[in-house]
């Protein structure tokens, strides 16, 4: 191929997809927290998740 752009592009894409699939990457937005106290198991209400404060949809046509 005279212009190897597509060759490099295609191989990079295949590599990226393989890595994404192997590592289990996802498009879901997830907030990662460290050191959540073990007491959450005994008192789940004490844990305040990051997503608690997101706006809610009230749907219907």
């Amino acid at each position: 191929m005279r212009h190897p752009f597509y060759l490099v592009f295609g191989m990079a894409l295949l590599g990226l997809v393989t890595t994404a699939e192997y590592r289990g990457w996802s498009l879901t937005s997830v907030n990662e927290m460290k050191n959540v106290p073990k007491s959450v198991r005994d008192n789940p209400g004490a844990y305040r998740a990051h997503y608690m404060f997101y706006p809610r949809h009230i749907g219907g046509k």
Binding site: T28, S29, V30, N31, E32, M33, K34, N35, V36, P37, K38, V40, R41, Y47, A49, H50, Y51, M52, Y54, R56, H57, I58, G59
Partner: peptide, 20 residues
């Protein structure tokens, strides 16, 4: 509608994945 706040929490390390 219903909204679910989820946290997947590692019981040993305390690492958590929060999402709604």
């Amino acid at each position: 509608w219903a909204y679910f706040n989820y946290a997947l929490i590692n019981s040993d390390t305390g690492q958590a994945f929060d999402f709604g």
